[in-house]
Each structure stands twice: as C-alpha cells, then as structure tokens.
Design a binder for these strands. Structure first.
Length: 202
DNA sequence: ACTTCCTGCTCTGATCTAAT
DNA sequence: ATTAGATCAGAGCAGGAAGT
C-alpha cells in the first residue's frame, strides 16, 4: 500500500510555485478540497479530476463575486459621500424657515412625511418666482429679463428643471436654453452690480 | 442703412455621474 | 480607480425685430 501523505507531500513540494498563488492557497486551505486532492493523487480518475475542477470553478467564482461586491460597496459609498457633500454645499437650507408667508409649516416639519412632495409642489404652484424674491434689486433685475428669460429662470430655479428638461418643455435645443439661461443670469448680475454701486453713492 | 438686442444653431471642451 | 455616456456651458456665426 502506498503512503498517501508522503505522495501528497511530494506533490505539494513539486508544485510549490503554483501553490504560492493566494487563490490556490486559500482553495486548498478548505479541508474538503485538500481531501479531494489527496484522493485524486491516489486515484487520478476522470471523475475526480472533473469534481476538483468544478469545485475550483465554484470557489473562484465566489472569490470574484465577493471581490466585485466588495469593490462596488466601497466605491458606491465613496461616490455617495461625494454627492452628499456636494449637495450639502450647493443647497444649503434653512430647515426651520416657513415654506410660505401664509403657513407656519417649515421644511423640517414636512421633510419626513409622505405628503411632503405633494404639499411642496402645491405650494410651489401657488405663486410665481417673483414672490420668492425678497431682495428688491434682485426683483427689479428679474423684471429686466425678457419673457423667455424669465420663463427659463423660473423653470430652472423654482421648479428645479435641468436645461435639457427646459429645452424639451419649450421645444428648443439644450444649448439654446443654456445660452438664454447664462444671458439672463449675466443681465441680473450686471443689474445688481450697477444697483449696488448706485447705493454706495447715496 | 446701420446698430443693437434677442434668439437660435453647431461645434467643442469641461465637468459630472454611473457602471464596472 | 477608470471609463463611457450624459450634461453643461462658451465661442462663433446668422437671422429677425426694433430703434435711430
């Protein structure tokens, strides 16, 4: 009778380099797989070769799948954090400010309720962007815009639409909306600068 | 006729986002 | 971390309307 452990030791020694591979190393660290290898060395039948092959394929798939999931979770959390910081920086909110002059309900009050979206859109629709402009010069600046520019500013800042969405709504190209949007902002900015200089002289 | 303003278009590069 | 696709924004040009 042959000494199996001596044969296995010989096999492991002969294939020392391949066994340094971390995946093969972890594969053989599982007792069932090592047992399968022992049996194969003792009796190298097609059936055992196939069995070991399948076992390794399954093991390798699990390794890759786990690694993929791990990377996805890792990078997703990084991206989520990036987006969160970016949004927090862009949209600084005063949570306890009333949503409108007619109500004492604050953004914070309705934030967690399921009715929030409907309630907010109803409030948004109940007045135009002029009602939102509390700064006199900003209001006057807005009034300098053409009808088309006002419409774009209103859709962008009151209803939160992107340039593409506005373009689709107004049946124009995204670039045309972008340009009108930029011109409107420039006009308001110029108006405000002139107004602030005027105020300094008073 | 000329000028100014507004608007639209294409092209192109920059930036952002989502997927791997 | 990398990459492909989506989105944004600026430059340059052209046409129409209104005022001088």
């Amino acid at each position: 009778m042959r000494n199996l452990s001596t044969d296995l030791t010989g096999y492991l020694k002969a294939n020392e380099d391949q066994l340094k591979n971390s995946i093969i190393h972890s594969f053989l660290a599982i007792p069932e797989n090592m047992e399968l290898l022992k049996q194969l060395i003792e009796d190298p039948t097609d059936h055992l070769i196939h069995q070991l092959d399948e076992s390794f394929k399954e093991f390798y798939f699990r390794i890759r799948f786990t690694s993929y999931l791990s990377k996805t979770i890792h990078f997703h959390s990084i991206n989520f954090d990036k987006r969160h910081r970016q949004n927090a920086d862009r949209f600084r909110l005063i949570l306890d400010k009333p949503l409108s002059s007619e109500t004492e309900t604050s953004f914070l009050d309705v934030l967690a309720t399921t009715e929030f979206k409907n309630e907010l859109s109803e409030i948004e629709m109940s007045f135009g962007i002029e009602d939102q402009l509390t700064n006199y010069w900003l209001y006057e600046g807005y009034r300098q815009l053409t009808e088309n520019q006002r419409q774009i500013i209103s859709l962008a800042y009151l209803h939160g639409l992107t340039d593409s969405e506005i373009a689709h709504k107004l049946n124009r190209s995204q670039q045309a909306v972008s340009k009108s949007h930029a011109r409107a902002l420039k006009k308001m900015r110029d108006f405000l600068e002139t107004a602030s200089k005027r105020e300094e002289h008073i």
